[in-house]
Design a protein around this nucleic acid. Structure first.
Lengths: 349, 349
DNA sequence: CACTATAATGTAATCGGTTTCATCTCTTAC
DNA sequence: GTAAGAGATGAAACCGATTACATTATAGTG
């Protein structure tokens, strides 16, 4: 029951290990007869070369580390899937590095990201992708950034969507500002002037950027941003429900709500339902992210796509180039798309 | 910029590599002074031992392969996350092995599972978890089963939820039959007698088992199963919509619909909406799976939990025991729970 | 003080492959 | 007939750790 090795094969085939290795990798001509003898033995013993030993000398492992904050958030599987699909064509396998677990305090998150970087380095991965988490804050963790830069010197690192202004780390990112601007402009085009913005965390860069985009659109149209209609502090359905109820209970209520993500938008849908407001007839709602569920809700959610597939695909493409030692631009920007569905409608006078 | 090794550290510290290894692993006493000299150098060079080399000789890699059919299906991230959470406490890292991509034909799926088994063996993972896919069919792929059994001889393998009657492979699985029975009984208790069952694939074991559970409940209550109300053939929202419309358009329409998963149930909700039927007042709907979104829909979906967290946790526990060489029961059955929410109500006469 | 147990360290084998270099045989060309 | 080039193979070094075994220094004991 012992594991069979090249030596076992070599001995039984009456050749040297070098020859076995040659048929394994097609790296040099081997006499047809010898090759057949060897492959027969390989089949017979179901021999599989030990990837550890191979990687040790080849200095490439075919492994890529994918660090993400929470696999349970439907956005991440989406980009991971598309990344993995591309990446596996070239023979890579991904390590999943999930940095938060819902049941743990956030303060351990940094340690987790840092810890994973260490593990991935030890395991000699060929490349690392990082998305979200501590690097997505409006003030990204300086120590972590420094660490990532240090890691990037030794192995190709690709950031997705992070907020890293003064750094040489390669990135692919959607233009969040533009996405929010598109959403806001859409509402404005429908005649809305009283627009609330709910959800998100002001200390997170994505929220900040989206709010900036919103403000830009408002300014471009000469509209005023009312601060009692800006309610931030969470990304969940329940928070969305809470925030939406808050703005809908104001004496002066908005006619449209722009949500910082789809979960919040779903919460807002709930709030509208509870308040007896018809969507989109009496209240327009737009989400952000275009999670798979966005097109399943009733009514179907108008939202801004995070371009998960495109991001994953591009990330794979860039990382492979980096691994191959090719030059790549340090930032690849992806243009978001507005998905107009059923939760937005022209303002009714 | 060359990678530093134990030899570099040893040379610079004027000791042998053995001593360096000792401080690295705390495997034998080292003079305090020497230890400090070495750790200082380790810090200085940010030395990290090469896990490949270590694993090669230790014969353990701290890597676990997790084979699943589609990370985009929200159930899988859920169990993966809880599995990973447990497993990482013990120093393991998971390979993600996603066997299908939406854009590829199903016939390549078996090759993918088989291919991943090969890759994982080569990479010398300490254990493998398999969930769904080709092993979840009512007639599981015999060749694959044989292959899995072969693999299981060399490395601990744990199945989640598969359908493997005559095999010694260790499994943790929810009792699907019981879950469906709970759901059906719930509807019956509410006074429903005319119950449709939509969604699923009859060639998949989970669908088969759930339908069995449904029949059991009906039989126990002396109710009749009407075959025009049994519509199978898909697991998606759109299919659910289609199937629900089909049964709702029958001259003799059911008062409750039991769906083979939550996506189908969401489709059914849509169908009810289009047909102008109030849920749950005029139509009760129950789903299956309890995906995260189930509690976000409006109204919130009554459904059967797949116990993703519990499954993941248990799988981790069992696999660790297997890796440690301990005896474990070959099947650990998990009892499903009915989550009663807002889409079911007493039958209105 | 001699003797033994333990601490501290070094030497070299080992894990299982790949790869360089050397050797030998066999064509093919001139 | 011999030199050159390609084909086929083997011996041994190597990747970077761990560890069995050997050796020396130190401490403790009677």
């Amino acid at each position: 029951m012992k594991h069979v090795t090249v030596y076992d094969i070599a001995r039984e085939a009456n050749v040297s290990v070098a020859t076995v290795s040659r048929v394994l990798n097609n790296t040099a001509p081997v006499k047809k007869e010898t090759r057949e003898r060897i492959t027969a033995l390989i089949d017979k013993h179901q021999f599989q070369p030990n990837a550890l030993a191979r990687s040790l000398i080849r200095k490439e492992t075919g492994m890529i580390g994918f660090i993400l904050p929470d696999i349970t958030n439907p956005f991440f599987p989406e980009v991971l899937a598309s990344f993995d699909r591309e990446t596996r064509k070239l023979g890579y396998t991904c390590f999943l590095c999930d940095t938060v677990s819902s049941d743990e305090e956030t303060e351990r998150q940094y340690a987790r990201e840092s810890q994973y970087l260490g593990i991935l380095m030890e395991k000699q991965v060929d490349g690392i992708v990082m998305i979200g988490g501590r690097l997505d804050l409006s003030k990204p963790d300086a120590a972590l950034v420094r660490e990532v830069e240090e890691v990037a010197k030794r192995v190709p690192v690709l950031m997705i969507n992070g907020n890293l202004p003064n750094t040489k780390i390669h990135r692919v990112a959607v233009d969040q500002r533009l996405g929010a601007e598109l959403a806001a402009q859409h509402l404005i085009d429908l005649g809305h002037r009283d627009i609330a913005v709910i959800g998100g965390f002001v200390h997170m860069s994505n929220t900040q950027q989206r709010i900036q985009g919103f403000r830009t659109a408002m300014r471009n149209n000469g509209l005023e941003v009312r601060k009692e209609w800006m309610v931030q502090g969470g990304f969940s359905v329940n928070k969305g429900l809470e925030f939406a109820e808050q703005v809908l209970n104001l004496p002066d209520r908005p006619t449209a709500i722009m949500c910082m993500n789809d979960l919040v938008a779903i919460g807002a849908l709930k709030a509208a339902d509870r308040a007896g407001l018809a969507v989109p007839a009496e209240l327009s709602i737009v989400g952000y992210d275009d999670i798979p569920f966005a097109s399943f809700s009733i009514p179907e959610l108008t939202t801004v796509s995070l371009m998960a597939n495109e991001i994953g695909r591009l990330a794979a493409e860039m990382l492979h180039k980096l691994i191959a030692g090719k030059k790549v631009p340090s930032l690849h920007s992806v243009v978001p798309e507005l998905r107009v569905r059923q939760t937005t409608a022209p303002l009714q006078k």
